[in-house]
Amino acid sequence: MTSSRFHKAAVLTSPQEPTAKPTFSIQTLPRPVPGPNELLIRLTVTSLCGSDLGMALGHMGPVGAILGHEGVGHIAGIGSNVPSQDPTVQLGQRVGVAWTRDICGVCRFCVDLAHEGETRCAEALHSGKEAYPGTFAEYTVVPLRYLARIPAAFDGVPDEEIAPILCGGVTAYKAIKGCQVTPGQWVVVSGGGGGVGALAVSFARAMGYRVIAVDAGAAKEGFCRSQGAEHYVDVTSGEDPGKKVREFTDGQGAKAVIVTATAAAAYQQAFDMLGPFGTLMCVSILPEEARATFHPLWMIDNGWTVKGSSVGTRSDILEALEFVKRRVVIPKVQWAQLEEIEELMEKLSRGQLEGKYVMKL
Results as ranks from 00 to 15, higher is better:
V95Q: 06
V97Q: 01
G77V: 01
T28N: 13
L48E: 01
L40S: 11
L40E: 05
G77M: 04
S80Q: 12
S84C: 09
T88M: 11
G54Y: 11
T28I: 14
G68E: 07
E70D: 05
I66S: 03
A65L: 12
D52I: 02
R94A: 10
G58A: 10
I66C: 10
D52H: 08
P87T: 02
L48H: 04
C49N: 11
E38Q: 15
P32T: 08
W99C: 07
H59E: 13
G79C: 10
V72H: 13
V72Q: 07
M60P: 09
T100E: 14
V95H: 11
M55C: 12
S51P: 04
G50W: 06
L48R: 05
M60T: 01
S84Q: 14
T88I: 07
H59N: 14
L39A: 09
G54K: 15
P83V: 08
P83F: 02
G79R: 02
N37W: 00
I66M: 09
W99S: 00
C49P: 00
H59M: 15
A76C: 01
R31C: 09
P30A: 06
G96L: 04
I75N: 01
L91V: 07
L43R: 01
I41D: 03
R31F: 05
V33K: 15
D52Q: 07
G64W: 12
T46W: 05
H74P: 02
L53G: 04
G64A: 08
S51F: 09
P36G: 09
S84G: 11
G35R: 12
V95N: 08
I78C: 08
L67V: 02
G64V: 06
S47I: 06
S80A: 15
N81G: 10
H74Q: 13
L91C: 01
L91G: 00
G92Q: 07
L40I: 04
R31K: 15
P34G: 08
E38R: 03
I66K: 00
L29P: 03
I75T: 04
S80E: 15
G96N: 04
W99Q: 02
R94W: 03
L43A: 04
P32D: 04
G61P: 11
T46C: 14
G77S: 13
V45Y: 13
L53S: 05
L39K: 01
L57D: 03
G68R: 08
G73P: 10
P62R: 14
Q90F: 09
N37K: 13
H74V: 12
G58N: 07
Q93C: 06
G50S: 05
G71P: 12
T46H: 07
N81K: 09
G68W: 09
Q93V: 08
V95E: 02
R42W: 01
L57G: 00
